[in-house]
Design a protein around this nucleic acid. Sequence first.
DNA 1: CGCTTCTTTGATCACTATCAAGCTAAGTGG
DNA 2: CCACTTAGCTTGATAGTGATCAAAGAAGCG
Lengths: 226, 226
Amino acid sequence: MFANTACNVLSFQSCPVLKRERAREAPEGCRRHLRQGEHLFYEGDTAKHVFEVISGTLRLARVQRDGRRQVMTFGLPGDLVGLPVDGRHSAECDAVEPCEVIAHRFDPLSPPERWPDLNARVLNAALEEIHALQDHFLTLGRRSACEKVAAFLLWLGSRVGARAGRHRRVHLAMNRADIADHLGLTPETVSRTITQLRESGLLALDGAQTVVILDPDGMRVLAEGG
Amino acid sequence: MFANTACNVLSFQSCPVLKRERAREAPEGCRRHLRQGEHLFYEGDTAKHVFEVISGTLRLARVQRDGRRQVMTFGLPGDLVGLPVDGRHSAECDAVEPCEVIAHRFDPLSPPERWPDLNARVLNAALEEIHALQDHFLTLGRRSACEKVAAFLLWLGSRVGARAGRHRRVHLAMNRADIADHLGLTPETVSRTITQLRESGLLALDGAQTVVILDPDGMRVLAEGG
DNA sequence: CGCTTCTTTGATCACTATCAAGCTAAGTGG
DNA sequence: CCACTTAGCTTGATAGTGATCAAAGAAGCG
């Protein structure tokens, strides 16, 4: 639908202001707004673009035949999602909350000389994604429910957290089931674990969707298996 | 040690014969032989090379401060290992059994025009690795011990299996603890699960290091949560 | 205000970890 | 060639963590 209008300029600086600036500069056709629940792509789709997240939260997941789901990661502002494997998307991607993305036309099979900048940036994004996936591996394979949840909240906080006095407010755009599917737990266990963290004074809840991290150091110790 | 002699030619065709051919063609300095247990690199090492596995089995792992280990993957013939993140290796790598590798000089920060071929191939390898890691995610997060072990044996069989009559022989170069650290289990559970698979007629053991997959379809059903 | 969806809490159960001991096989030295 | 040693594998008994089943609160939305 924006196959002919997508821009070839990539920008995913770490500065969110620059990012928004970039979004305004990019040709209108590159930009896309997603409603909550709307899919950006499905697993197996032919991939002609990579997507840069400007605002909102995306959910990247793989689903088994029997319905079991694994949320690989959440796409947050600044992320580049939809890296293709063999020209296809390797996971489905939908919006957890309203999102704005920029579509970048990308064909890994094309000669790299055509868009050396794009290729180099995608390569860098891919290598970083491998690192992030490896981090998550440790969490998934070798940590308790409590450690998993603590590590997840710290990660999310480092990405989308806002200062709140001396503490850090983290908005959870995704629900408990999403978190559970990300951490290899059940929603009940996620809920219970958050309650536990609250009772031990490490965090506070402000509605079910917002956590305030009261003791980041304590959380960190917990997350790393202290 | 081979910093100045490593070749810049990348080859990781899917054909093992071509691979060996390539190994012979490559300058002598590129090739490296590892004894069992010898490290190729450690986590955090400056990464000037990527390594192509010619023969043997490598173990790529990350270790936490408390000693808990996660084996990210096993490097098998045809694999390209040691993709750097920010110029550093993101995991440690040592030889499970004697190995032969080719070192390819690679600097992701250098202008891609210098070695367009190398960059494109590394990008492709990185994207494929992401796919493989995602596959493993489902296994790690959402599967039972039995499903994990079955999936692992099938994967290994597809990579290093040899025909044995109508069946498939798979040599397990790694020990039970390695498998456990790969699947997020304990060695005891891996052992028990293999026993279980044997008792249900899906596979046979020929010594502890060799499994014969008697019923691949049954295994596949199990692995996918049938 | 009632419906729906999500979250929390409770009770129970199953799976896998843990601790412990025996077993097997390969390697070593007398 | 055969005890002896050692490392890894298997098996057993028990316990703990998280899953499952179930139901009661909250919160959003018509």
